[in-house]
């Protein structure tokens, strides 16, 4: 017998009131990162010791630029979701926990925006 109301069961948000959005986003970004990271590491291997001209030509290629933006988006989204869980598990002082999570999310957004801008600048302006 379940003690949950019919409405609660339909909403499916559970005791944390946010459902499985966090869990699901973590898995989706993980699945996306498998091919993206294999491609990225293989590319870095071929770029080992490259000079500026070769590196910029590689980053600025339309296909590479799009894949890099996807890698940055999926990667930093996955990273901040993962770090949030680690902080929630180990930091128990409420103000410190909330502050750390907010800082991690802001830092991830900043890294994604700055890196993405660098890729776009190379792609559009060389």
């Amino acid at each position: 017998m379940s003690l949950r109301s019919d409405l609660g069961r339909v909403r499916g948000l559970g005791s944390a009131k946010e459902g499985v959005a966090h869990w699901w986003a973590q898995r989706l970004t993980a699945a996306a990162l498998v091919p993206l990271l294999l491609w990225f590491v293989a590319s870095l291997v071929s770029l080992a010791g490259a000079d500026h001209k070769a590196a910029v030509a590689w980053i600025g290629h339309p296909v590479h630029a799009v894949l890099l933006l996807l890698l940055l988006g999926a990667g930093l989204h996955h990273a901040h979701l993962g770090l949030q869980v680690v902080i929630e598990d180990y930091v128990h002082r409420e103000w410190l926990k909330v502050t750390s999570i907010v800082l991690v999310k802001f830092a991830a957004a900043l890294i994604a925006a700055a890196s993405g801008f660098a890729v776009l600048k190379i792609a559009f302006a060389g």
Partner: peptide, 15 residues
Amino acid sequence: AIGTLMLMWWLIAAA
């Protein structure tokens, strides 16, 4: 996650 700082630095340097 910390390593993404290295990636950001490399991309900004290239740009």
